[in-house]
Simulated scan of single mutants.
Amino acid sequence: MAQPKVDIQIQSGGLGRSTQVADGVAGLVVTGVAATGLALGVAKRLFSLADAEDVGIKSDVPNLLHAWTQINDFFAFAGDGAELWIILIANTTTLVSAVGNSADDSTPLEKLLVAAEGRVNVAGVSMGRAAGYTPSLNQGFDGNVQAAVGAAQMVAEKFYGRYSPVHIILDGSYMDPAGGYINWRQGGTANRVSCFVGTDVAGARVSCMGKLLGRLASIPVQRNIGRVKDGSFMADAYLTSGVSVRSLTLGALNAIHDAGYILPRIHQGIPGVFLSDDPSLVDNNDDFSSISRNRVIGKAVRLTYQTYVLELLDEVEVQANGRISPTKIGYLEGRIENAINQQMVVNGNCSSVDCTIDPRQNILSTDRLEIQLKLIPVGQLKEIVIKLGFTNPALAT
């Protein structure tokens, strides 16, 4: 038997601190060929451009130049140390195949999300093609974009069901405005999917997805990617139609924006190029009609799951009348309010949180507890109206 002693044990949990959630983890499905150290269809986590080059994704490998460029663009925005998951796919892969929904999580996008174990909260698809590629134009873009949007929405919903919310951004490659692109803002239903039609390279027919993901990884979840205070997005701007944004009329650009696509834009008198907005491919009246709103609710989903999974199968005290104990209700409400206040309200991700549990629930019969959790989001200044005119002080007196 050990000698008599005073045993002081440090306990954790008294401060009510919550598990941290990573906001800026991105995923990239990108076309190319197998690298020397990375096979096609295998997900890989990177923390720098050097990590990509270590597995053979280099700028001097012609069939990997596109993938290298997107990765380089990501880390140029997000910085070394940011977390990026990539998966290489053959440059003959269709957009629908890249983002397809399967029963066994076997499509490239699904493989990437599964390998990341729920860490990826925004994923982009970049469809670089081999020289001489002939696009199959349909509804204003290469490939069956409508089918790809539907498939990506199904994948996003599936991973939401696994408490791993993700917003998916598709490459609006080979844009052909004359082809009658879909107006997603009128009847669209893909509120967890967006489409990017901008590039910084003259004549390029695919979007600069790496830049967009890098911007998203470097800003808080509530922030719009087009926020002017964050600085310009790139030096010059083109659409994936191959046309310079500066050559198009304001009316033509507004039409693309109003249809729900993300595109570059110019602010008069401000150097550089910015992004128009952060729309989802959904009707305007949907609560999740923007990437930023999706990222906010996605963070809340992760926090809520991580908070309440610890309470699973725990005992719930009830009073003589069968109602849940007020002490238990206060504890459960306080757990999630504390977590969201610490990680979201304090950081400006949302304005406030309110958790309510009805004590009249018959938990003895159902073993089920319903919790109402409501966030008040932050607003965004999308239109500023200034009434400017002259005044005559003499008339006022």
Rank of each mutant, 00 (worst) to 15 (best):
P135Q: 02
G210P: 08
A103N: 12
D51Q: 05
T240K: 14
I384V: 13
A202K: 07
A34T: 04
S173P: 11
L303W: 02
S241M: 09
A39N: 11
F77D: 15
K211R: 14
R119I: 04
L170A: 10
G124T: 02
Y174A: 04
G27S: 01
V201W: 07
G14S: 10
I357K: 09
V378D: 15
V301E: 05
E317S: 09
V122C: 05
N224A: 07
V155Q: 15
T107I: 03
N72E: 12
Q3G: 00
L369M: 14
V301P: 00
I8Q: 13
N338H: 04
S247F: 01
F196D: 09
G187P: 14
Y174M: 07
S292W: 11
A90H: 09
I169P: 14
W184K: 15
A156N: 14
K229H: 13
L313D: 12
P377H: 09
D23L: 00
V21H: 03
A259D: 14
Y181L: 12
D230T: 15
I329R: 12
T93N: 05
Q306Y: 03
D200E: 04
I297A: 03
L369A: 12
D287Q: 01
A2D: 01
R215C: 10
L248F: 01
S244F: 06
D171H: 13
K382A: 05
G100D: 04
I386Y: 02
N254T: 11
L28A: 01
A339F: 06
P279W: 06
S12Q: 14
M344R: 10
D287I: 01
G198M: 05
H267V: 12
D104H: 06
L332P: 09
W184C: 13
V243Y: 03
I329K: 10
S106C: 07
Q146G: 01
S244T: 10
P279H: 08
A300C: 04
S351D: 11
N183L: 11
V149C: 06
I225S: 06
I291S: 04
L95M: 06
D367T: 13
M344K: 10
T199A: 01
N321S: 01
R246Y: 05
V273Y: 02
G132I: 06
M344C: 10
I371M: 13
L313P: 03
V33K: 11
D80Y: 11
W184Y: 15
T397Q: 08
E370W: 07
A217E: 14
V166L: 08
R129F: 00
N349W: 03
L263W: 09
G389S: 11
A98E: 00
H167R: 13
R17C: 08
A76S: 12
D142V: 03
Y160N: 10
